[in-house]
Amino acid sequence: MPLLTFKIQRFDPEKDKEPYMQEFTFEVEKGLTILDCLNYIKENLDATLSYRASCRMGICGSCAMLINDYPRLACETQVLVLGKTLIEIKPLPNYPLVKDLIVDLTPLFAKHRAVKPYVIHPDERQPEKEFIQTNQEQTKYLQFAYCLKCGICLAACPTVATADNFLGPQALAQAYRYNSDTRDNGLKDREKIIDSSYGLWRCHMAGACAEACPKGVDPALAIQLMKKETILGKKKNIAPLALPLVGVEPRPGIPKAPERTVK
């Protein structure tokens, strides 16, 4: 089994003035992820190591960190695939540091919330029936709907490195995701936020977000498409509601659906 050295950034705001690097050396076997190795360190070598993770399968987005100078999900990165005997792990850049490998993702969530990341229905009423959306219509936004909110794209972006208030790739991609959804009619609402100098137009296509995103969300694509649509106008169908069923009798013995609880 290969012997690997892990250099991990440590910082405890209650004790330390500056972050420092701590080394751990142990044998790893094939198939272990960086997260497995961090768990091993915490269980066997140093219980004070702090990091964040929960699903260990690339779906919760909490284990993003800077691994050998590249932002990745610890649970989706196999140690031996990196092909190095020295593995350097640091917290994600461009976020306030909380402790060791944990950063404060509050800026990410605030920006996400700012773009109204939910379906805004054409009129005030709750729809009575489901929307009809074709596969092709769904493909226009599905890719962007896979975002985990892991924050990797903001760590990779050179504009975020100097502009705190830039909305950033994650939020802009989500704005595009909902603007392209045929069930949504919130384009005007979102335009006020994204069509601004710290929104859409601060992106200069460095492309790092698209390359680093662990889910293939490609925020750069969403942003460029949105720039074009902001200049030339966006055409989109609004999804029709399904027609009410007529002449359908429920089979005997099937109970009636309960009354709706949300008015």
Binding site: D69, Y70, P96, L97, A156, P158, T162, H204, M205, A208
Partner: peptide
Amino acid sequence: IKQRYRLGTKGWFYAGRYGIERYLYI
């Protein structure tokens, strides 16, 4: 802590092994 961890202009020059476009941007 916040100021220390935003990469700042340093983040323009070297922030990791990204594609060529990120360096063209700079």
